[in-house]
Computed example of a mutant assay.
Amino acid sequence: MTEISRLEGVEPFELPPLEDCVDTESLDSLFGRPDAPFHEGEVKFRYAGYDVTVKYTGEFDIA
């Protein structure tokens, strides 16, 4: 996650793998395709000390 690497002042490869925190294939299945089963909603998870919210629109928030 480049935004978190920017906040932390490190290169993205220095962060833990995102797949250790969330199943990225499932995120793609839920929200990543035009025929995805969910047209609304969000998924929240914790990554590298941050709360991440991924919205069905593809937007995300980091807190």
Rank of each mutant, 00 (worst) to 15 (best):
V43L: 03
M1W: 04
P34D: 15
F13W: 11
P17Q: 09
F13E: 13
D61G: 05
K44E: 15
D23G: 03
I4E: 00
L30W: 06
S26D: 14
P34V: 14
G32L: 07
V54P: 05
A63H: 10
C21R: 09
E59R: 04
D51A: 11
G49N: 04
L15M: 07
T57D: 10
D28Y: 15
T53M: 09
K55G: 06
G32R: 02
E19P: 05
G58D: 02
L18D: 04
F60G: 00
R6M: 09
V52D: 04
E42P: 02
V52S: 00
T53G: 03
Y50F: 13
E14M: 09
D61C: 00
P12W: 03
I4V: 13
R46Y: 11
S26F: 14
G58P: 01
Y50S: 05
M1C: 10
L27T: 00
E19D: 15
E25P: 04
E40T: 05
D35C: 06
D20Q: 14
G49R: 03
F45T: 01
P12D: 05
F60K: 06
D61N: 09
K44C: 13
E25W: 08
G41M: 00
P12R: 04
L15H: 04
L18V: 13
S5A: 15
G9S: 07
T24F: 02
E42W: 05
F31Y: 14
V22R: 00
F38L: 13
D51S: 12
P12L: 00
S26A: 15
I62S: 06
E14L: 08
Y50W: 04
M1G: 11
A36E: 09
L30E: 03
H39Y: 11
T53C: 12
G49H: 00
G49Q: 04
E8F: 08
L7T: 02
L18K: 07
E14F: 06
F31D: 04
S26R: 15
K55P: 01
R46W: 10
H39T: 11
D28T: 15
E59G: 07
K55I: 02
K55A: 09
K55M: 08
H39M: 11
R46H: 13
A36L: 08
H39V: 12
L7A: 12
G58M: 05
E19W: 02
D51M: 10
E11P: 08
G32W: 09
D28S: 15
E14K: 09
F60M: 01
R6T: 12
G9E: 10
L18C: 06
R46L: 10
P16F: 04
S29K: 15
P37T: 13
D51R: 12
Y47G: 01
Y56W: 12
